[in-house]
Nucleic acid binder design. Sequence first.
RNA 1: GCGCUCGUAGCUCAGUGGAUAGAGUAUUGGCCUCCGAAGCCAAGGGUCGCUGGUUCGAUUCCAGCCGGGCGCGCCA
Length: 557
Amino acid sequence: MSSDPKTHLADLLRSALNVVAPDASSTEILIERPKQASHGDFASNLAMQLARSLKANPREIAQKLLAALPASSLVTKTEIAGAGFINFTLSAAARTGVISDVLALGRDFGRSTGGNGNKVVLEFVSANPTGPLHVGHGRQAALGDALAALFDWQGYEVTREFYYNDAGVQIQNLALSVQARLQGLKPGDAGWPEAAYNGEYIQDIATDFLAGKSVQPADGASVTASGDIADLDAIRQFAVAYLRNEQDIDLQKFDVKFDVFYLESSLYSEGKVDDTVRRLIDSGKTFESEGALWLRTSEYGDDKDRVMRKSDGSYTYFVPDVAYHVAKWQRGFKRAINIQGSDHHSTVTRVRAGLQAVGMGIPQGYPEYVLHNMVKVMRGGEEVKISKRAGSYVTVRDLIEWVGRDAVRFFLVSRRPDSEFVFDIDLALSKSEDNPVYYVQYAHARICSVLRQWGGSLESLAEADLSLLTSPHELALCAQLRDFSVAIEDAASDYAPHGIAFYLKELAAGFHGWYNAERLLVDDVALKQSRLALAMAVRQTLANGLTLLGVSAPESM
RNA sequence: GCGCUCGUAGCUCAGUGGAUAGAGUAUUGGCCUCCGAAGCCAAGGGUCGCUGGUUCGAUUCCAGCCGGGCGCGCCA
């Protein structure tokens, strides 16, 4: 018998189904938590699903299923309701058992092994080193890191990857921008390059370059500025290292760590681009026209064919993109998940088309994409567009300085990725009831405070008599704790970390409600122990959920 | 124009082929001689954009329309 009530109920229904309708024994059995407490702890719509194939009234089918249902000590009541729902009420022991699980598993409560150690790579941020990280990158960092954590907790072997272009046209523009600053030019001056970056940070780079400073980005060797204004190559190398280092500092402040920094230039230097082009040509899916080499992406769902190699001999961006994903496949990642802004959605079809055309047996849906919408930052009722540093957009650094890392991370993962995001600075700053970060953290700190005042040993709580927990608040809290692993599973499979944020808000609400309704530190020692055990389990679950989102769980605040 | 996407309470947003569509905020009214009031309880607030279709059942799936966002380059 499974210790998890939900799978246990599914087992019971399955065996009843085999008796009542052997022909339909493959019907999927769905067990859900009803929204209303009066509908029991779990409900199944199995009878309604069977209604058509059995050509019978759902309520009659439900009757037969219940008659054939094996007895179970975990179930105290079954009921047919509504159009044919079967509602189950669990025994008190089955409900409170989760507390023992949480206390025993501790920081691992919520982890599962469903991923079987399969390798998955999540690529996110992937900002080219041409400027500071902006709010959109922040959303990606928060989303990607949380998703990576969710997959880790689901038992996958996760790689967090940052891909960037260190040698293309944009980098050349960066070098030219710095050089122009070194020559004393400013944006708008005669002679200021057309495609130049206009932000103030370009001046900072120029100043450090002249001063002969050194920088050491996380993924590369230390670079010392030559100070030679004429040496564009030296300027480029220094500027790239400088900005990579700046991005590293921001990511560190954001508490996001990458396992791999992948350079686009390596795809060329290691022959991966040439290899991919050769495979595409060999596939017969290419053709020459107007001096360029094209790929028939329209055969794979694209609305028109795309140029691979321009008439000047250089490749369009999507060729290295395809080569990069071929490399991911070859590195053994059966799953690759890319978190990108929705303004890149047109690349999805193209990259997948290229991967089909290379004929290496890569699945059609490879890689998977999580596209997110843009972020609008509001302050004082107005949209904030200007950053002193970047010149035209709000940076991750700005946000962290304004409201702190926890609030930024929690806010940025608390919406569906494809929603347009309004980040209200005033709301994130408010240290009161309208700030969901503090609401969740407060519940955690409050529990810590109670446990401190009690002063007993936390280990002893595992011995508590859980049968003393009988109030609706307490049993509802237990059900919420049991939902944690489902919340993680759903959030991972739907690419929806915001589910965890909502789960945490609800769990905190459940705790606050209980706390106000009942006293934890009562005189009755056994009752006190049992309540503290529940509180401890809530604390642990809050902490685990906050960890998934990269938010701290303070013991006091 | 074409493609993708979104449209749910005054505002910011969840959610679902199923039972009375939820939360926060805002508004109104209560709760600290007691574990943290950064908290709790309660009330009011809805044509789930519109119109059709599929279904026993649609806010959810499909089509069309209206409205917002994004994309539509031999840029990335």
